[in-house]
Design a protein around this nucleic acid. Sequence first.
DNA 1: ATCCGCAATCTTGGATCCAATTTGCGTGCC
DNA 2: GGCACGCAAATTGGATCCAAGATTGCGGAT
Lengths: 254, 254
Amino acid sequence: MPGAHPSASLVAMSERETRTAGASAPSAEALQKLAGRHQAGYRSVGTMAYDILRDAILDGTLAPGQKLRQETLAETIGVSRLPVRSALIQLEADGLVEFHARRGAVVKALSAEQAREVYDIRVLLEIDALRHSMDEMTPERIVRLRELGRTADAEEEGADFVDARTQFYAELYGAAARPVHWEMIEQLRLKVGRYVLGWRLVGGGDHGHSHEELVAAVEAGDADAAAEVLRSHLTGVRDAVLAMLSAEGGAAAR
Amino acid sequence: MPGAHPSASLVAMSERETRTAGASAPSAEALQKLAGRHQAGYRSVGTMAYDILRDAILDGTLAPGQKLRQETLAETIGVSRLPVRSALIQLEADGLVEFHARRGAVVKALSAEQAREVYDIRVLLEIDALRHSMDEMTPERIVRLRELGRTADAEEEGADFVDARTQFYAELYGAAARPVHWEMIEQLRLKVGRYVLGWRLVGGGDHGHSHEELVAAVEAGDADAAAEVLRSHLTGVRDAVLAMLSAEGGAAAR
DNA sequence: ATCCGCAATCTTGGATCCAATTTGCGTGCC
DNA sequence: GGCACGCAAATTGGATCCAAGATTGCGGAT
């Protein structure tokens, strides 16, 4: 349901607003708020800009299709254009933004087909990661897992919600110590993070016990059951995301 | 386009060889040769620098562990340090280089475990991509596939060898039109590209007919057979790469 | 009145310049 | 003689400045 977001007015700036006052800000204030959260001491300003912009994209402050003007972003964050450019390059590599020749960068949108792809691949990769991890599972890890699962379920807010779940899955797959595998999963989760967030805000939380269910299966050592829980969870989220995407697909097309 | 670049001081890196040993010197000329191949009109210098450095890493001109000094690279390529930095950031996202705090970038090495991971994941992803693609396979695509397979088998040289194979797999998996899936596969292939190249140069080419074998299975519509050919091919290459990595693992460590 | 072309302005991309941090080396002290 | 502290040089990271290209708005011509 639109309108519920605090900073949801970002989609409205489509084309007419670009020239007049659009130079500085549809989302300036929300972005500044994010920037404030990251004002802590970073070793390099570029990584700070990256984190700010990534979070802004993930929580919808910068919506898909949004034009990203380097100078505006730089002024809003409070740095020069150079670290912003670095951040944009990284975000392009992450698949979150798209560079159009010499015409600037825009927040990349994910089509329904691509979202389906992401979840199909995640099913493959994560079930495999889970099986590998279960071979090396330890009781201590189970304890931490259960803890993190509770935290993740309790978390409601946007960015923290994604973070909590990331920690849970990092712990879940971490036993196998497969950095490349985890990196791939992280990339895929990053691509759909925004849409999951939207779904979480809009839809309900019927997935609340799936974490515990998963931990229980892992604890019991039943790989097939755990895989099935994971698979059904992922496909469930996938379907919800797809429904949301097709629902508002025509609006945010470009 | 008629830009007579000031390709001046290119040999500047031999200024001081105090403790080089195996770290920083020997690649200036080879890198320049690569730079020459890419001197064609690029829209942006940054992408050119990226291509040059990526190829340099892939064909071993810049070996794993190599220290990448921005100014040296910039002078060798003939541009400023800024596009080099952009390229390095992209390469970091690709997992080919690694930034060490404020101490510069080095060419990232792939451990044997990580290489194994890459191939394990590739088996998962590529077999799935293959099955999806076979659902949409067309006779015309088979024809092009057979053509590309022959080209790939004929190709011997380094960079072109990888390129030819890339085209073959792009055509093979392209029928399914799954951009995210293909992007993931490309990333993984990029990570091991250097080692495959080394293996190709060192070892033999007993895999010559696997392309044709694969195409035949695809043409026959036998998904299981095609998957098995692909799987055995990938595990074969994997084992060769692993053997090579463990063989010279102690030497090129540092 | 509409369409094509030109020019001005805005925005990206690149280069040079400056500061901050790290590293290597020298000296002094233990 | 060895280790530690400090200084100096080099290299990375950031900011400001400059050029190139694209888009848009305006004007003229058909």
